[in-house]
């Protein structure tokens, strides 16, 4: 009997454990607090293990997100940096093209309006010296450039060609002290010479005869008069910014701000053939008319008063 039991001990064991399992099942259904009690006991053992597993998983998640995943991010960053550089250089060239386009369009408009012919050239260097204000352009005698040809940027007068090499030329700027341009004031129709000053960005108007009593006002436009033999009549030079007191009773100190911005100039137009431009006379505004009438009235009143005064003294 014992030997039989030993032989089939595993079978008996299976039956016994199965029986216990069934009993436990029925017990857990009848008394649900028993499995709950067991669970709470087991939970006390499990909770530290679970906590440490959770912490390990959180740490590994953190490491993954902060370091391993960031490897890809750094790669993406490199790619994006390259793309950014490419886009920046593209943007730079586009901006350059935009500026060039704008400047060339201005020159084109100028040639159409003034009905003049010439050569478009790029400024390749600027003379940094304080005493000589010149530009070097990339066109020379090979391209048909000659000395004393007028140079413009499409808006106003830049200067004239001072020296010509085979492939490059030097432009003497209007603001140079050795430069002088025959000019005409648009409203007052007075003529004179615009000469460069030591103040880099200003021209001085000389030899303007103000004895006729014609008033010169600020903001009046200054144009080429065509009397210097270089610049044809009617090209814009600048605007009067300062009108000084009369010196020697004949000439007045007048400063002109050129319309050309010499510091940013990039493209110029060398005029080879041109015609005089008709200068439109700007109608005086209502305010200036009133001021002039007032001035006249005051003078006549003064004259009458002085006449009466002399008459009274004579009678006395």
């Amino acid at each position: 009997m014992v030997s039989k039991l030993r032989k089939h001990s595993s079978l008996f064991l299976i039956i016994a454990y199965s029986f216990i399992s069934f009993q436990l099942m029925s017990l857990s259904l009848r008394k649900p607090e028993i499995p709950k009690l067991g669970w709470s006991l087991l939970e006390n053992i499990f909770s530290p293990i679970r906590k440490s597993i959770y912490e390990i998983s959180q740490t590994s998640d953190y490491v993954w997100k902060r370091y391993v995943w960031l490897k890809d991010v750094s790669l993406q960053k490199d790619v994006l940096e390259i793309q950014l550089k490419e886009l920046k250089s593209k943007n730079l060239s586009l901006t350059e093209l935009e500026y060039e386009n704008k400047s060339l369009r201005t020159i084109l408009d100028f040639t159409e309006k003034s009905n003049s012919k010439g050569i478009v050239s790029q400024v390749i260097s600027k003379e940094p010296s304080n005493w000589l204000m010149t530009l070097t352009i990339n066109k020379g005698s090979k391209d048909g450039i000659k000395e004393f040809l007028p140079v413009t940027d499409g808006i106003g007068i830049v200067g004239k060609i001072a020296a010509v090499a085979e492939t490059t030329s030097t432009v003497l700027l209007a603001t140079d002290t050795s430069s002088s341009i025959g000019v005409l004031l648009q409203n007052s129709r007075l003529t004179g010479l615009a000469e460069g000053t030591l103040k880099k960005d200003l021209l001085e108007l000389n030899y303007i005869d103000t004895s006729s009593g014609i008033a010169i006002s600020k903001g009046e436009k200054v144009l080429t008069s065509g009397m210097d033999g270089i610049f044809k009549k009617g090209y814009l030079v600048g605007e009067i910014v300062e009108v000084g007191n009369k010196i020697d009773g004949l000439f007045q100190k007048i400063l002109v701000k050129p319309v050309v911005d010499f510091s940013t100039i990039e493209n110029v137009f060398i005029i080879t053939e041109s015609k005089d431009i008709e200068i439109p006379f700007e109608m005086p505004t209502e305010q200036t008319i009133v001021e002039k009438i007032k001035e006249k009235d005051d003078k006549t009143i003064d004259k009458i008063v002085s006449k009466n005064k002399t008459k009274l003294t004579d009678s006395n």
């Binding site: 399992s21 499995p35 669970w39 087991l42």
Partner: peptide, 21 residues
């Protein structure tokens, strides 16, 4: 082992232990 599994669920005692055997 099955009994521990049963206890960890906290609802029934027996199914996992029987399955394990």
């Amino acid at each position: 082992l099955g009994l521990i599994q049963d206890l960890s669920t906290g609802i029934y005692l027996g199914p996992n232990s029987l399955g394990a055997i």
